[in-house]
Design a protein around this nucleic acid. Structure first.
Length: 179
DNA sequence: ATATCGATGCTCT
DNA sequence: GAGCATCGATATT
């Protein structure tokens, strides 16, 4: 994935990431669901400017932004333009499924990576990957083919709830929720 | 199938 | 001190 790919509005990047493949230390699969967050977006962690937590969002494009969610889970984002990022919400498991099951416990394939916290646990993502550049270390991202994309409101937010900045692969059984 | 709720650790006001 | 970019369990239609 070229640097220029990330240096665009997160809404375009989020859409174009559907059907790409991501792996962390060889474990991963096909990106099924994403959400975009923009600097002027009240739902975005970057909305009030840089802080220690969101520093990676204002760092280089094409790097990871990882944060803890509800004190329990990790969430993984890809930084686009400054202050904008794409949240990975679901992956279709493809590589290293045995290791994913070790990390998440015996579970139907459908639930291994269907949700932002679940996919981080399955891929072994934690704060150690925050600010980490993509495609030059353990995190690898490769282009996918064209696909039928659907869009809708983002999940789990309380502000800017109407913006249709959640994207998914139409009809996939690995979506975290229906659109 | 949908609804509610507790867990748990930050961050930012 | 309030509020989370969530998940899994339990309860209820």
């Amino acid at each position: 994935m070229e640097l220029a790919f990330y240096q665009r509005p997160s809404i375009d990047v989020a859409r174009d990431l559907i059907c790409s493949t991501i792996t962390v230390d060889g474990v991963g699969g096909i990106i099924i669901e994403t959400e975009a967050y923009e600097p002027d977006d009240p739902a975005s962690h970057s909305f009030n400017g840089p802080t220690p937590r969101n520093a990676a969002m204002f760092g280089p494009s094409g790097c990871a932004y990882v944060y803890r969610s509800y004190g329990i889970h990790w969430c993984f984002n890809i930084v686009c333009q400054p202050g904008s990022a794409v949240l990975l919400r679901a992956i279709e498991p493809l590589h290293g499924i045995d290791l994913m099951r070790e990390r998440r416990g015996l579970e139907p394939l459908k639930l291994l990576c269907s949700g932002p916290g679940r996919l981080c646990q399955a891929l072994g993502i934690d704060i150690g990957l925050n600010g980490h550049p993509l495609n030059s270390g353990v995190v690898q991202l490769a282009c996918g083919s064209d696909a039928e994309i659907i869009a809708g409101p983002r999940i789990g937010i309380t502000r800017a709830v109407e913006k249709p900045w959640r994207f998914g692969l139409a009809g996939s059984p690995f979506l975290s929720r229906k659109f």
